[in-house]
Design a binder for these strands. Structure first.
Length: 273
DNA sequence: AACCAGGTTGACG
DNA sequence: CGTCAACATGGT
């Protein structure tokens, strides 16, 4: 590939951690530490050597218009980390978690794909979530660059519940169908969710069958750049029990709640296996 | 074989 | 309002 962009002087950035922290189910590392996947209708490959990042298959214009934002390279994570530690009153748990997951960033992924991905995620494990999503894109996405785009709501709606069930997603098929139907009929509107405040957006998303508080907050965090949410899953429950038995005041975290949650999730999830 | 996985639903007090 | 079995599937 002769078409690539090189970014020097990275800080607080690790593609390994970013794509292995449970926010993204469709990027995989191939032979030599190169992480590839399809987003925004295009296949990109990432390679990081120290504080240098190579993004293959894009040009400078595309980097500035899309991928810089996608990779959250327009965000100052040093400042965010400092702010989070302060808001946790310098406690050792969050400090350790941030040190451990120092290279994590919240990607700006596509809303519809995130809605489906986190509906699939419920009562499920990450390897199987990935497999189900693979079957979804292989059967209903569009082939490009040796991969597939994520299928539109319309395509999944037209497939119907029975065909979705054949993808081995179990009881979640009717949830995906309901979400797709709402998008197709306009009862759920991506652009509208973007404009809503977080509380209203949470309520709107939870009108969809199969979307409860945890999935809704993951959708807002990973798909709508709303970072003032705090998704509570089994791992975060363990964090709260172990390290914050007297309770953690999430309201004081403000717009840093979701990012703090991600450090805690990654810390608990990957230091206990 | 029983339990778990980035939970939610619907039923029952 | 809170509690709890059931839910599909695959892995340990």
């Amino acid at each position: 590939m002769n078409n690539y962009v090189k970014i020097n002087g990275l800080k607080d950035f690790s593609i390994q951690q970013i794509f292995d922290c449970g926010q993204c189910f469709r990027f995989d590392s191939d032979d030599d530490g190169c992480i590839s996947g399809i987003a925004y209708g295009k296949k990109i490959s990432l390679k990081q050597i120290g504080d240098t990042l190579y993004i293959y298959n894009i040009n400078e214009d595309e980097y500035e218009s899309t991928w810089k934002h996608y990779l959250a390279l327009d965000v100052d994570y040093s400042q965010i980390k400092q702010e989070i530690i302060q808001r946790f009153d310098n406690d050792t748990t969050i400090s350790s978690a941030i040190e451990y997951g120092h290279g994590i960033r919240i990607l700006r992924q596509e809303p519809w794909e995130i809605i489906c991905s986190f509906i699939i995620s419920q009562n499920n494990n990450i390897p199987r979530i990935k497999k189900i999503i693979s079957r979804m894109v292989e059967n209903y996405g569009i082939a490009i660059d040796g991969g597939y785009t994520f299928p539109t709501a319309e395509v999944l709606y037209n497939a119907g519940i029975d065909k979705l069930t054949e993808l081995k997603m179990g009881f979640r098929a009717k949830y995906i169908y309901d979400a797709a139907e709402r998008i197709v009929t306009g009862k759920l509107n991506i652009d509208e969710i973007k404009q809503l405040d977080t509380v209203t957006a949470m309520n709107k998303l939870q009108e969809v069958k199969g979307i409860g508080p945890k999935v809704a907050s993951c959708i807002l965090l990973f798909g709508f750049d709303k970072t003032d949410v705090f998704p509570i899953d089994v791992w975060i429950k363990r964090v709260l029990e172990k390290y914050y038995p007297n309770g953690l005041d999430i309201s004081k975290l403000g717009k840093y709640a979701g990012i703090a949650q991600q450090y805690l999730f990654y810390f608990e999830r990957y230091t206990n296996i």
